[in-house]
């Protein structure tokens, strides 16, 4: 699982993340919503060990990232807005490479082809060079990497941005499958609809603070949008969220 305890990051005078307390349980999909600069990507970078926290801790499956950076990274998979792969290598070769670097040794081609097949890339696609892939196919390779490395947690940063609705939907299904295997998923996104569809909980961030957290079961699409916009304009409070949750139920 993923856990942040009073996680804080300051860049000079700017407070990018302010005492974030967050737990994403195994099998749970937690979506972080927020405008640009709200602190979503900073949160993910802190979990990935790309940034040092100013205060607090980020842990993955019980390992504090700052204390065990490599071990922690080996328990997590990361899918950014653009899954960047090696254009001159095939999908299969990319998967083999990333899996081996994650400390899983060299897996057999048949194992890896099976994983790629699970995410919707058949053998002919898997053996083609990634330079010919669509964005959706590259995102699927990203998911395959998470499966192949047997990640305990998955961090996603705007993964469905730019995907067509079909690819986006397929991606959501794959995420659901991963959560079903017990993977803790933290996804930063602008896509309220996708967050509501795929997430178990959503958190709204504003100016580095997690200003609201709610279960997606308890809120309708338009209410989530309304609440989000009110938070963005600064005229909502967590208490008003509770009212909405009651109303929705």
């Amino acid at each position: 699982m993923l856990e942040a305890r009073t996680l804080t990051k300051r860049f000079d005078q700017t407070l990018a993340l302010d005492e974030l307390d967050l737990t994403v349980e195994a099998g749970e999909i937690f979506c972080l919503l927020g405008a640009n600069g709200a602190g979503k990507t900073t949160t993910i970078n802190l979990f990935l060990g790309f940034l040092e926290p100013t205060a607090g801790t980020a842990s993955i499956d019980g390992l504090v990232v700052g204390d065990n950076p490599l071990e922690a990274k080996r328990k997590v998979a990361y899918i950014p807005e653009q899954v960047n792969l090696y254009r001159n290598l095939s999908g299969l070769e990319n998967l083999a490479y990333f899996t081996a670097l994650a400390g899983h040794g060299e897996r057999s081609d048949s194992d890896l082809l099976e994983v790629l097949d699970k995410v919707g890339l058949d053998r002919s696609a898997a053996e083609r060079r990634v330079g010919t892939y669509s964005k959706g196919m590259r995102q699927k390779v990203g998911i395959a990497i998470a499966i192949a490395k047997d990640a305990k947690a998955l961090l996603l940063d705007e993964p469905t941005s730019g995907l067509d609705p079909k690819a986006s939907n397929e991606f959501s299904v794959l995420l659901g499958d991963l959560a079903g295997r017990g993977v803790a998923v933290l996804m930063a996104t602008h896509d309220l609809f996708r967050a509501k569809e795929v997430g178990h909980r959503v958190g709204i961030m504003r100016s580095g603070r997690l200003v609201d957290t709610l279960s997606t079961d308890t809120i309708a699409h338009q209410d989530l949008e309304s609440l989000y916009l009110r938070h963005m304009h600064g005229d909502a409070s967590p208490s008003s969220t509770s009212d909405l949750e009651v109303a929705a139920s």
């Binding site: 990935l48 990274k73 997590v76 998979a77 990361y78 960047n84 670097l101 994650a102």
Partner: peptide, 17 residues
């Protein structure tokens, strides 16, 4: 520049390796 370095490091690759 291509973003693969970030991807590699996120995967747990050691910079020395």
């Amino acid at each position: 520049e291509n973003g693969t370095l970030r991807q590699l490091l996120a995967a747990g690759a050691r910079p020395s390796a």
